[in-house]
């Protein structure tokens, strides 16, 4: 497959010169995100995130399986992402690129290992039956800042998802279909969000957020913060690049916290809108068999 074209010398000089003067090609401020759109599908657990030309769709599905023998009390939770020729012809099917592996690992650290989803609540019968929750991340188009948009899509989809209701009487497990009982939400503990900062300039002193693909190719370094609205940091990753001043990192962390609160508000607002849309005739409260946490 053809290789992706690198930015030309004139493109590179022009963009870097503009950034050093505090200007961006799409006339945004240095610390400004592109317009972010989040929408949910007709099914439960489908979230579509559009960030400029970047578009990511996350779909959650659940089924009952046997838990891992070394963790009999835990359910299974996995996130998979795949970049294919839909993103650009240079991505091949079944041959993961570095971007893809880094994305998968970052999402794993942010969402799975930070304990955002209570996996113990997915256990049905210890050692025998548990829910296996799986998030499929479909990247439809990538124009920079894939990490932030993917993380937002996954968190939003998981919070939107409803799994079939179950009941256990003695040894028999009953799984109810959507027609029998209203599906129940997952036990969600906190919502971490990623914010990526990209460094430009000689010593990496210029900080940009939400870079486009062109800017991403020209950066000298980047750092990704994952934290929830309470300021609890899940992970910070700075993979190579130029070394950056410690004070700058602390400033970035402050900005990441503000951004995380913004994302939380956005997801909450969209979820409330969607719940209203689904709640035709106000019967949802009666249909639900779930207890308050």
């Amino acid at each position: 497959m053809p290789r992706e074209a690198e930015p030309s010398l004139s493109e590179r000089t022009f963009t870097l010169q503009a950034i050093s003067e505090g200007l961006r090609l799409d006339s945004r401020k240095l610390d400004q995100f592109r317009p972010l759109e989040l929408s949910f599908g007709d099914e439960y657990g489908v979230a579509d995130v559009k960030l400029g030309k970047t578009r990511v769709l996350a779909k959650v599905s659940a089924e009952v399986t046997v838990p891992f023998s070394d963790r009999p009390f835990d359910g299974i939770f996995q996130i998979t992402s795949e970049l294919g020729p839909m993103v650009a012809p240079s991505f091949e099917v079944n041959r993961p690129t570095e971007t893809e592996i880094l994305l998968a690992r970052l999402l794993e650290k942010t969402i799975r290992r930070s304990g955002a989803l209570d996996t113990e609540s997915l256990c049905l019968i210890a050692g025998q039956k548990c829910w296996s929750v799986r998030v499929d991340l479909h990247i439809l188009s990538a124009d920079g800042n894939l990490i932030d948009s993917s993380c937002l899509a996954v968190v939003a989809a998981l919070r939107h998802f409803r799994r079939p209701d179950t009941s256990i009487e003695g040894e028999t497990l009953t799984i109810y279909t959507a027609a029998e009982r209203e599906p129940v939400p997952l036990s969600w503990l906190h919502s971490p969000f990623c914010t990526t900062f990209d460094f430009f300039g000689e010593d990496g002193e210029i900080v940009l957020v939400d870079t486009t693909w062109l800017e991403e190719q020209l950066r000298v370094g980047s750092v990704t913060f994952s934290l929830n609205k309470h300021g609890e940091i899940c992970q910070i990753s700075k993979l190579g690049g130029k070394p950056v001043e410690a004070t700058l990192i602390i400033q970035c962390a402050q900005m990441a916290l503000a951004k995380s609160k913004e994302f939380t508000d956005l997801v909450d607002a969209r979820l409330a809108e969607d719940a209203k849309r689904r709640d035709k005739g106000g019967l949802m409260a009666e249909l639900s068999a779930e207890n308050e946490r």
Partner: peptide
């Protein structure tokens, strides 16, 4: 992206 849902059957992934 989406397949029609059948409210009487629980979906299976594989």
């Amino acid at each position: 992206m989406e397949t029609p849902e059948n409210a009487y059957v629980n979906p299976k992934v594989m």
